[in-house]
Computed example of a mutant assay.
Amino acid sequence: MQDAHMLLPDLTASVQTLPAQVSRLAYFAVFDGHGGARASQFASENLHQTLISKFPKGDVENLDKLVKKCLLDSFRQTDEEFLKKASSQKPAWKDGSTATCLLVVDDVLYVANLGDSRAVLCRMEQTEGEGESVVTLALSKEHNPTIYEERMRIQRAGGTVRDGRVLGVLEVSRSIGDGQYKRCGVISTPDLRRCQLSPKDRFVILACDGLFKVFSAEEAVKFVSKILQDESTDEKTGHKLEGAGLYEAACQRLASEAVRRGCADNVTVILISIEF
């Protein structure tokens, strides 16, 4: 198992002197390791600590800009610290990891991601009739060497892309760790997305590519939606599930279904409910 994750539903007390306009912080993250579990484990243990130390404090004017800078700086520092540790080992560690992090600042989501783990949002939209339809919104961007801009950066750095992989080996074009590929254009700069939440939003699925190899984003959202709407009954006890128990059951079923569909990879899934 080379995946790691972190769930911090209430980070508020961890940041000293929060900006006056911020009343609540939460953090959720998924890390999919390759070449070993050390990079994913390191990132899961350290990224949020760095984020807490760099989060804007006191009176600030441009909170949005500062939060984005904080995320970018935290990813860079986490990567640098892991690479320093990895290169000091004998033999040097070659582990790498994707990272998809969700930072909730009151009713705004900030998603920072590297690699191919993903975040998707379920939003209910009014249809022309009386009902509502489920809409799936991508909150992250995949980074693999077959994407034009990613391939160009790798080639400009002197690397090559063969069989859809960096140097014919690495499947992602951005990551934490992977020291031997950093000179070939593999970077640790995440993509950033900002999403204003609304009462129409229901939940976010945060998962590694193990889930998305056998589920499209739309399928995964509809699968969870159906379980939540059916107010699922626990198969073992026969009791009706509500609140956190219902979300936990939906999360477990989604991961189990990915395995049942033949996913041979690690499957890590976080399901975050959105309530107004």
Rank of each mutant, 00 (worst) to 15 (best):
T78I: 10
D107I: 02
E130L: 15
E142V: 04
A86P: 13
T146A: 15
D116S: 02
P91M: 05
D95L: 00
T127M: 11
L137T: 08
D73Y: 11
L102E: 00
G96T: 10
L121W: 02
V120N: 05
E81R: 13
V120I: 11
L83F: 09
P91H: 10
G115P: 00
K84T: 15
T78N: 13
V104M: 09
V120F: 02
D107S: 15
R123D: 05
V135S: 08
F82N: 03
T136E: 04
S117R: 04
C101F: 00
V120R: 01
T146R: 13
G115A: 00
L83T: 07
D106P: 09
T100I: 09
N144W: 08
R118I: 01
L102G: 00
D107L: 10
K85C: 07
R118C: 06
I147H: 08
F82V: 09
G115T: 02
S74P: 00
E132K: 13
M124C: 12
T78F: 03
V120G: 02
K90I: 07
C122L: 10
F75I: 11
D116C: 07
E128P: 05
T127V: 12
Y110P: 06
Y110Q: 03
Q77T: 14
R76Q: 15
A138G: 12
W93G: 07
D79N: 15
E130K: 15
Q77L: 15
S133N: 11
L103G: 05
H143D: 15
L121V: 02
G129V: 05
D95E: 01
E142L: 03
E81C: 10
L139G: 06
K85H: 06
V134H: 09
E130D: 15
V104W: 12
V120C: 05
K90V: 13
V111A: 04
V134C: 12
R76N: 00
S140A: 06
L83R: 14
L109E: 01
T136W: 06
E81I: 04
S117C: 03
S87M: 10
K90D: 13
V104Q: 09
R76T: 10
Q126L: 14
E125Y: 04
V120E: 03
S74L: 13
P91S: 06
D79P: 11
T78M: 10
L137S: 01
